[in-house]
């Protein structure tokens, strides 16, 4: 009996969302009085044993470079090897792109109940109930998993990363490879040098009130001062002012940062569906009646072209730059 956490890597780096899942799994193991182990696939920039500093006893490592791109079937086979070797009872993933592709396969293979998008540790006082966000952020559900083996994916930005010490974990190599993967990656394009939107702790978002793509410099400066990712409303992406991968909302990306700053966005319900899981929302809009103010924590009524540069200036002062 143990908890196994799948730790995703991208170009050898372990991403924040996976470290959150790792800390979630370690905390869960402690709660139910068992050990936590991790499974990692592909080449790592750091030593796999270093994951011990997050509280895992063992790291199962599938080292083959064939794992450097993700084929859901090949990943499933490798993770299954670690599930069997560690006799895992709960398997934890991040609800990131890889988790969403692989966790359901593992759940189906093990006939394990799946809660996808957990926002808190399970309540194990009477059974095993996991809280997750439903109705695109409009409510929460407490979902009981009734099967003996359980699979959980953890929503990004829902759980704090905790380094527990400087122990090293024992590393055990996996035999699995992705040599027979049926999905072949032809090209991989990474958006360079930017904070990935779904992982960002702070998101700065612009709407039609920005008037045109040439005005985005002030938002880029604001985002830069906060180490934030940029997002936009749908009409902005549709008009090609900004790339589609920045479009948030019901039809775009769903984000759940600690801070969402909406600039010149009216706050239509379809936009809110993608952002209302944010912990704190700041709305800057010249129209005091804009619906977004109803969902906001802090609001500023006025001309964004005057307000945004001043806000950036004050943030720089706070950060001492």
């Amino acid at each position: 009996m143990s908890v196994l956490i799948f730790v995703d890597q991208a170009e050898g780096q372990i991403r924040k969302a996976s470290l959150e899942a790792l800390s979630y799994g370690v905390a869960l193991a402690k709660q139910i009085g068992t050990t936590a182990n991790a499974v990692v696939l592909g080449n790592l920039a750091k030593n796999a044993a270093d994951l011990g500093s997050y509280g895992v006893s063992k790291v199962y490592h599938g080292e083959s470079d064939t794992f450097n791109t993700m084929d859901a079937q090949a990943y499933t086979n490798a993770i299954m090897e670690a599930v069997q070797k560690s006799n895992a009872e709960v398997i934890v993933f991040s609800h990131n792109q890889t988790g969403r592709a692989v966790a359901p396969r593992i759940a189906a293979k093990l006939k394990a109940g799946l809660v996808a998008g957990a926002v808190a540790l399970p309540d194990t006082s009477n059974g095993f109930a996991v809280r997750k966000s439903v109705f695109s952020g409009k409510a929460f559900a407490n979902v009981a998993i009734t099967s003996p083996v359980k699979v959980i994916t953890v929503n990004p930005n829902s759980f704090r990363i905790a380094e527990t010490g400087s122990e090293t974990a024992q590393v055990e190599k996996l035999d699995a490879t992705a040599d027979n993967a049926k999905v072949k990656a032809a090209t991989v394009n990474k958006v360079q040098g930017e904070v990935p939107l779904t992982e960002a702790e702070i998101v700065v978002s612009g709407g039609r009130g920005m008037k045109g793509p040439e005005n985005w410099g002030i938002l880029e400066d604001l985002a830069h001062s906060l180490h934030a990712a940029l997002a936009c409303s749908r009409p902005v992406a549709d008009a090609h002012w900004r790339p589609h991968h920045e479009h948030v909302g019901q039809t775009g990306i769903q984000v759940s940062p600690n801070l969402y700053i909406a600039v010149g966005i009216s706050g239509a319900i379809q936009h809110l569906a993608g952002v209302n899981r944010s912990k704190v929302m700041v709305v800057i809009n010249k129209d005091a009646e804009a619906p977004f103010f109803k969902a906001a924590d802090y609001g500023v009524v006025g001309d964004l072209f005057e307000i945004v540069p001043k806000l950036t200036e004050e943030i720089k002062k706070l950060k001492g730059v």
């Binding site: 759940a107 006939k111 394990a112 109940g113 799946l114 809660v115 109930a129 439903v134 952020g137 409009k138 409510a139 929460f140 559900a141 407490n142 979902v143 009981a144 998993i145 009734t146 099967s147 700041v282 709305v283 103010f293 109803k294 969902a295 906001a296 924590d297 802090y298 609001g299 500023v300 009524v301 006025g302 001309d303 005057e306 307000i307 001043k310 806000l311 200036e313 004050e314 943030i315 002062k317 706070l318």
Partner: peptide, 29 residues
């Protein structure tokens, strides 16, 4: 079925928006 929804909750109501004057970004920060 391997899971069952035990209960639902609506998110806690927002305390209401706190307005900050456009001339005072130091206060917002």
């Amino acid at each position: 079925a391997l899971t069952k929804i035990v209960s639902y909750e609506l998110p806690p109501a927002k305390a209401g928006v706190k307005m900050v004057p456009a001339t005072d970004m130091a206060e917002l920060v």
